[in-house]
Write a protein that binds this DNA or RNA. Sequence first.
DNA 1: AAAGCATATGTTGCATACATGAAGAGCGTC
DNA 2: GACGCTCTTCATGTATGCAACATATGCTTT
Lengths: 226, 226
Amino acid sequence: MQDDLVTVGEAAEQDGLLYRIRRLVLGGDFPPGAVLPEAFLAQEFDVSRTPIREALKQLQHEGLVEIRPKVGTFVREPTRREIIELFQLKESMEGLAASLLARRGEVAELAVLRRNLEESEMASLTHDTDAYARLVHEFHWTIVRGSDNTKLVEHYERLMNQLAYQRLVLRTVEHPGRLEASTREHRAVLEMIEHKDPFGAESAMRNHVHASSREALSDPATDPRR
Amino acid sequence: MQDDLVTVGEAAEQDGLLYRIRRLVLGGDFPPGAVLPEAFLAQEFDVSRTPIREALKQLQHEGLVEIRPKVGTFVREPTRREIIELFQLKESMEGLAASLLARRGEVAELAVLRRNLEESEMASLTHDTDAYARLVHEFHWTIVRGSDNTKLVEHYERLMNQLAYQRLVLRTVEHPGRLEASTREHRAVLEMIEHKDPFGAESAMRNHVHASSREALSDPATDPRR
DNA sequence: AAAGCATATGTTGCATACATGAAGAGCGTC
DNA sequence: GACGCTCTTCATGTATGCAACATATGCTTT
């Protein structure tokens, strides 16, 4: 169902193990800082430690966990500084995506974006934050996929995994007035794309991501102590 | 010491295995499309197949090799399309880096850049292409590291590995007139950074990368048949 | 002679066993 | 009573063995 939309490029995941463990980490089932014993995961997924180790090593390279040699694997939470850094990258990448999409003709993604905007306005009016969070996710991913740049998609996916973005969005959509502002920004982006204005689209997208990042960083959940 | 500059973020590589195998692949010791048997690498590096497999799996996620299940691991060469895509990303990321660096004060990186530019002009006059290729590498990496954004550095490193950039640069610096043009572009970037003009720096950097990508793509070595 | 099939081989994928090293508990000493 | 040391325990890191599968070879059949 929506999972197909949510996981997007992950469909190409040959071994679901990496994906499943990533969900475990991102889903917050394990408290950040906690250890994930290989033996436990092996038993949990009914495989040997070997494939578990391969997946964990990959997650380490993604920055989601930290493997302290001979000690264990720990769930890693991005520091506030890293969140800022990742948002800067997000702004750049999504700006590029919007620009590339604007250069393309009338492609299927545009219809998805228009429909998404309509549904977002509905969700905004009814203050259905869960639906809105899902729509935001879809909007951004549609633009990135619409860039028709597979390498951008790959790096973006990696970036979003590092950000643990879902958690952040669920917080920011609850800020008063953010839904309406976000929808306006989405509309501006879409209009620029429809006008085939790459610079305008990039600019609008970067503005939007920047605003969104400020919202996320202003949230107390992004613990400033770290 | 210069090795530290060249290998940059790789210093954090705990197991040199991944790094060493990557060098093997990027160094072109294996013909693209050739298999790298795990057993051979295991014997070569005097370890068991297990750490070899971990490294290969990582290289697969980096896009440098392709693991066909139950068949073998093959050296993967980026297609022309992928090179275009990667250059678009490079342009975006380096633009971001230049912008961020321009926002910072007088940092140590600026001195490195100034010195680099001087040496580049020398190399340009004497047509020392090897030295110039090294200096180009240093110039770009210095800007990226100077962005003071570790996540950008990580993604950039990944990107450059995927591009197998060294091979490309060695070709383009031999294009007539390219050295002079490249040096002019570098100067423009540095001036914008010194003037603390983030937008100008980003713009100049993107122009430069764009020009450089056209050079690389015009080279017959970037096989258009693929 | 050509096409199809069975077999053989070589490689990966996973599981298990063992070695290595780190953190913690318990004891002895100051 | 507190500190330091040793030993135990447990988790990871690596090696090896075995099974599964894809490819290639040679044989049989038409």
